[in-house]
Amino acid sequence: MQPPSGILLKDVRLAFKGQPVLQISHLCIPPGEKVFLSGPSGSGKSSFFRLLMGFLLPQEGEIHLHSQRLCPQTVHSIRQQTAYLPQRLPAFRASAYAVLGELLGFKANQPEAPQHKAAFDHYCQQLNISASQLEQPFFKLSGGEQQRAGIALALSLQRSIILLDEPTAALDAINREKVAALLESLSGPTVIWSAHHPPVSTQWRTLAFPLSKR
């Protein structure tokens, strides 16, 4: 049986120093589905994202993304088709524009660099990030500004799977709603995000962490 072109986890077990963190016997996220991860801190949401990116390796089980089983041979291609915004953003000394330039300079992103740049400008506008903010050193922006710029960077790469780990943690209620509405408006990509404030809309499938009973 071909795994679906979305995300599939089978019999995945992840533990740190003998302590189980995640146990997923079967989880299927079909292409295009919008998934919200709820749950307290330390319930394994970040580890779940890092597993999907191959930054953490499970002790057991299979992970499939984009119809490919995650393994050393496919990890690079999977990462190239997936956008991931970590909970803690790097303290870039360069501006957000310069960071975008760096990302678009990667060989994999070069062919569609103009489209990515246009998408970035579009998302920045939607999230109310001004040009002057984008020209400042990234680490000097406020936590909320960094997060919004980070979201714009992640979305601008136009990947078919988008993973956002607590992208609204430092945002006020108005901006949280803006981000949720923006993510809801994306048609096509599979979107998975986590937050402590659940979105209002009912179009999100909610996965409650910890997932140990699955």
Binding site: M53, H76, A83, R88, L89, E102, L103
Partner: peptide, 18 residues
């Protein structure tokens, strides 16, 4: 110290070298 930065690059499609 800046492992997030390295991973941020990989996640954005960079090769290890990039």
């Amino acid at each position: 110290a800046e492992q997030e930065r390295y991973e941020f690059g990989l996640a954005a499609g960079a090769s290890r070298q990039e």
